[in-house]
């Protein structure tokens, strides 16, 4: 057995190199840069990720990053940039978004229902965190010094209460 084989031996031996795509980007917290990042992300993960999972990933990331652009990176609050990282794991795509804007209100992470569907006065917003919560697993947030860190997984296959 060569030394390389020995290193890779054992019950959990892994291939020496990973060839799955990943994505990392530092972008300005504005909707145009978010759009560009998502377009590039889709190109990077196609065809390794199927269209359904890709669509859910793109929707969740759009909601999260547009929230950052709208709220956290307001003028005067931080650098106005954010970091996005997406890697492929066994069961899904693991994502992390960080920014140095204002703190995320605790309400965002509390379990959400859809905004009341009053047919005479339909809601035009309030869907973002509902979609984020419904389409992700292991959603977690922490504040580290002056940075917001949000992490979650978008599963390849759906088995949750909302399918999508």
């Amino acid at each position: 057995m060569s030394s390389i084989e020995r290193q890779n031996a054992g019950p959990k031996s892994r291939p020496a190199t990973r060839t799955q795509p990943m994505f990392h980007r530092v972008l300005q917290a504005d909707p145009q840069d978010v759009r560009q990042a998502l377009t590039d992300l889709r190109a990077r993960f196609t065809p390794a990720v199927d269209a359904d999972a890709m669509g859910r990933l793109e929707l969740v990331l759009a909601e999260v990053m547009n929230n950052v652009a709208e709220h956290a990176a307001a003028p005067g609050a931080g650098s106005g940039s954010m970091h996005l990282c997406v890697i492929m794991q066994e069961g899904g795509l693991s994502c992390a978004i960080t920014d140095d804007g204002g703190k995320l209100p605790a309400d965002c992470l509390k379990p959400r229902n859809l905004p009341a569907l009053d047919p005479l006065d339909l809601p035009e917003g309030g869907f973002g965190w509902f979609l984020i919560q419904g389409l992700t697993q292991s959603l977690c947030y922490y504040r580290e010094d002056h940075r917001n860190c949000l992490a979650f997984t978008v599963p390849y296959q759906l088995s949750g209460p909302i399918s999508g």
Partner: peptide, 16 residues
């Protein structure tokens, strides 16, 4: 398209 239909369906706006 499927990505657009998903947003209407998940938010129940497909009923509106």
């Amino acid at each position: 398209t499927p990505n657009v239909e998903r947003v209407f369906r998940l938010t129940r706006m497909d009923s509106v």
